[in-house]
């Protein structure tokens, strides 16, 4: 996704995990990155999301 270090990514979020938690967190984030990449997969430009803004109950 990017070439920056995981430590730098965590710093940019403003979160301050314990040093000993970092390897586990990095593994989890890698899983999430892979999931996000799958979600971003090719789709039509105009494909709508399933949730909608509604003024009144349908």
């Amino acid at each position: 996704m990017s070439e920056i270090s995981f430590e730098a990514r965590v710093r940019a979020t403003g979160l301050k995990p314990k040093a000993e938690d970092m390897p586990k967190l990095e593994a989890l984030v890698k899983d999430m990155d892979r999931a996000a990449e799958l979600v971003r997969g090719p789709r039509a430009y105009s494909e709508e999301p399933l949730s909608a803004f509604r003024l009144k109950k349908a």
Partner: peptide, 18 residues
């Protein structure tokens, strides 16, 4: 929200993948 330094911004920019 604290102001970001240029270094921090560059990290955010790199994360965008743009």
């Amino acid at each position: 929200m604290p102001p970001v330094t240029r270094e921090e911004f560059d990290i955010l920019a790199a994360q965008t993948g743009l």
